[in-house]
């Protein structure tokens, strides 16, 4: 689904952000990118969404040779990628519903499809009752859930999340991770850059650790580097996250789940058909 071959990214001639990275992520995987600030996590995400071009090396994303893709073909590639950021990037003048619908409007989805899909995906993130609110009327966690809904509403093959819980307190992160996990279970490949030890340790998914632009660890069912936790005296080990605990709102998500999965199977087939063209 994503493949990086010998990728190097140098900024301004001398700042090396990514150095000789080889990485392969299969369809349906959930991958954490971990590492200190400036280790190259965000650059890697930006390279995968073709917001940046590598200085050397090749990148394939969703069956396309992203690093060699003509710029006019980039929009098409982006339609198979959903993106979530630390700062949410919601439009303040649009309601929750409109923010999510916007992602479909701009790619030319028919009005009836929008009317059908937006409520479903809002249900998935547990915000059906707040569809008419504006972002400023929501908590940080809720805003991020809107952003995830927007990233997922077009049913992308890949979801790239750059520090999605970076601005949130640990309690708020739980529902976010539950939603990302659920999205992953529909077959969507999820790549998430994060600092959050607790989340990585609780999820037990593949962990790719970066240090000064190089991959220093690639471990399936890994944890956040324990050595780093020990170096930060203030950080108390947090109680492990109970991702499968039933919390208010879970039922709502479950209710929407069957239809989401069913539809996803069809949509993923569609997109794969496109790839072969």
């Amino acid at each position: 689904m994503i493949k990086l071959e010998n990728v190097t990214k140098v900024y301004g001639g001398d700042t090396v952000a990514i150095k000789d990275v080889d990485l392969e992520i299969s369809k349906g995987e959930f991958v954490f990118l971990v590492g200190a600030s400036g280790s190259g996590k965000s650059t890697l995400i930006r390279l995968m969404m073709r917001e940046e071009q590598p200085t050397h090396g090749d990148i394939w994303v969703a069956g396309k040779h992203a690093s060699a893709l003509a710029s006019w073909k980039v929009p098409h590639l982006r339609r198979s990628i959903g993106t979530v950021f630390q700062d949410f990037k919601l439009l303040p003048t649009k309601t929750v519903y409109e923010n999510v619908a916007f992602a479909m409007e701009v790619t030319g989805k028919h009005r009836s499809v929008i009317r059908n899909q937006v409520p479903q995906v809002l249900k998935l993130v547990g915000l059906s009752s707040k569809a008419g609110r504006f972002p400023r009327q929501l908590s940080g966690g809720e805003q991020q859930r809107v952003a995830i809904a927007r990233a997922f509403v077009n049913r992308p093959l890949i979801l790239l999340a750059d520090e999605p819980t970076g601005n949130l307190d640990p309690g708020t992160s739980v529902p976010i991770m539950r939603i990302l996990d659920r999205i992953n279970r529909t077959g969507t490949t999820v790549v998430m850059a994060t600092h959050d030890h607790a989340i990585v340790d609780a999820m037990k998914r593949r962990v790719v650790q970066l240090d000064r632009g190089r991959v220093t660890r690639d471990q399936s069912r890994g944890v956040y580097d324990t050595r780093e936790i020990a170096q930060v005296p203030a950080a108390k080990p947090e109680p492990p996250m109970q991702l499968d605990v039933d919390e208010p709102g879970t039922e709502e998500i479950d209710a929407g789940d069957t239809s989401v999965v069913a539809e996803d199977a069809v949509l993923v087939d569609d997109l794969e058909g496109n790839e072969e063209e």
Binding site: V74, P75, H76, R78, T83, K89, L91, F102, V106, N154
Partner: peptide
């Protein structure tokens, strides 16, 4: 500019 950024991330075509 924010709207445009989001449009581009969502894969809105250049002409759009």
């Amino acid at each position: 500019r924010e709207e445009i950024e989001i449009m581009r991330l969502q894969g809105a075509s250049n002409w759009f």
